[in-house]
């Protein structure tokens, strides 16, 4: 909890929200294999261009993807930092649980010793 929990949780919230939609998860999975343009994604998912564009906007707002400002086709690419933030937060949570439970083992041992055998 040394980390700024609210900022991390904010990011986690945005990431999870973006990933809550199955099409967006498929787009992210596709971009994990490399950049793609909107028309390539339209072809890949057999969805209309406005649908794909709307999903891309949500993903872009969440920070999960970015779109090139240079090339005319504006290819989309995955920004792994978001996933790393999510991973770091989960890693921290995991170790808190592990440590808590190691202490709980000791508390339970003490309680067992105090309690008469049944």
């Amino acid at each position: 909890m040394e980390l700024d929990r609210s900022a991390l949780v904010d990011q986690l919230d945005r990431t999870l929200t973006a990933l809550a939609d199955p099409t967006r998860r498929r787009i992210v999975a596709r971009l994990a294999r490399g950049e793609a343009t909107v028309s390539e994604l339209v072809e890949c998912f057999e969805l209309t261009q406005p649908t794909i564009s709307s999903h891309l906007k949500t993903l872009e707002r969440s920070g999960l993807i970015s779109r090139s400002r240079v090339a005319q086709t504006r290819p989309c690419r995955l920004e792994p930092e978001c996933l790393h933030a999510l991973g770091a937060w989960l890693g921290e949570l995991r170790s808190i649980y592990e440590d808590n439970y190691a202490r709980l083992d000791e508390v339970l041992d003490k309680l067992k010793r105090e309690q008469p055998k049944r």
């Binding site: 909890m1 040394e2 921290e92 995991r94 808190i96 649980y97 440590d99 808590n100 439970y101 202490r103 709980l104 083992d105 000791e106 508390v107 339970l108 041992d109 309680l111 067992k112 309690q115």
Partner: peptide, 30 residues
């Protein structure tokens, strides 16, 4: 999060619900 404990359920329950016991283990980060 799934965890097993070498203790009967009534003790694990107490450790999760009694403040004086929780204070001994649910202390969070180092």
């Amino acid at each position: 999060v799934v965890r097993s404990f070498d203790a009967p359920v009534d003790l694990v329950w107490r450790a999760h619900t009694e403040p004086e016991l929780l204070k001994q283990w649910m202390t969070g980060p180092p």
